[in-house]
């Protein structure tokens, strides 16, 4: 691979850069509280909230940077930010 002029590249190449390792806190759903309102999916700046067939959502931890917007905005406090530990 060599660098193209000005770094021009095919679209979608950011998929290669998995940014999940930047995360300090990981969001975790409490599906008993979740009302499937979709706010977390709408507000996620990294498109790291993925819909499931059953109407609930799950996090794509390859790209979630742990910003916590979803947990902050969740009207039912159904998302907990848990410290990442080895």
């Amino acid at each position: 691979m060599s660098i193209q002029l000005g770094g021009v590249c095919e679209p979608g190449t950011t998929r290669v850069n998995k940014t999940g390792a930047w995360r300090t806190f990981r969001p975790v759903y409490d599906y008993d509280k979740c009302i499937k309102c979709k706010l977390c999916e709408l507000l996620c700046p990294d498109m790291a909230v993925l819909p499931r067939d059953d109407g609930f959502f799950e996090f794509d931890y390859d790209y979630c940077k742990g910003c916590g917007i979803c947990a902050n905005e969740c009207p039912k406090d159904a998302i907990e930010m848990v410290l990442e530990e080895k």
């Binding site: 770094g7 021009v8 590249c9 095919e10 679209p11 979608g12």
Partner: peptide
Amino acid sequence: PEFTLDPKNPLTFGAFADPTAYTEFRYL
């Protein structure tokens, strides 16, 4: 130009370069 922004042929301009490639951008 060799590359142009064109919706019909999408390309990414101004992507980021991490420490594995940034030096080479400056060299070029």
